[in-house]
């Protein structure tokens, strides 16, 4: 007997649930947080984890959440923080005044030297990446 199409929803796979994906991301982040900047290990680990997520994201291997077909006019509000950030990042980058007028990267570097902060940044990056892959 055929079922109506809207009733046949694919059950989420076990590894696609937060109870599985979040601990995996935490483990990956804790490892990443131990790797120092400019090291070969950090480069390989970043390229490896990011490459794997891009491969998953482009190969249709995970179910995606539906994307909106149109954006409401209120989407223009997002231009405000993007413009403010872009103006400061662009100005600091072009003027190249170092620590006197630092870019966002220069400001973040000393914070990211702490292993705990670095692991938290890794988790934020991987969690957002996973979110993008599923979009």
């Amino acid at each position: 007997m055929d079922h109506p199409r809207e009733l046949t929803v694919e059950a989420p796979r076990a590894w696609d649930r937060p109870v599985v994906s979040v601990p995996v991301l935490i483990c990956l982040s804790l490892v990443g947080g131990q790797l120092p900047s400019f090291s070969t290990q950090a480069n390989l680990y970043t390229l490896g984890t990011g490459g794997a997520l891009i491969w998953i994201g482009l190969s249709n291997r995970v179910p995606r959440r539906p994307a909106p077909h149109r954006l409401p006019a209120g989407a223009a509000w997002w231009l405000l923080p993007v413009t403010v950030f872009g103006v400061f990042e662009g100005t600091t980058f072009v003027l190249s005044m170092g620590d006197d007028f630092p870019t966002f990267s220069l400001l973040a570097d000393p914070l990211l030297e702490d292993h705990l902060v670095r692991s938290a940044a890794w988790f934020a990056w991987l969690a957002a990446f996973w979110g993008l892959v599923r979009r």
Partner: peptide, 22 residues
């Protein structure tokens, strides 16, 4: 070609490399 998807995922990959490996 999913240009938006490739561009967004590629940008996010570069961002992680820039902050976490450089």
């Amino acid at each position: 070609v999913p240009v938006g998807r490739i561009g967004f995922l590629g940008f996010w990959w570069w961002l992680g490399w820039h902050f976490l490996a450089r």
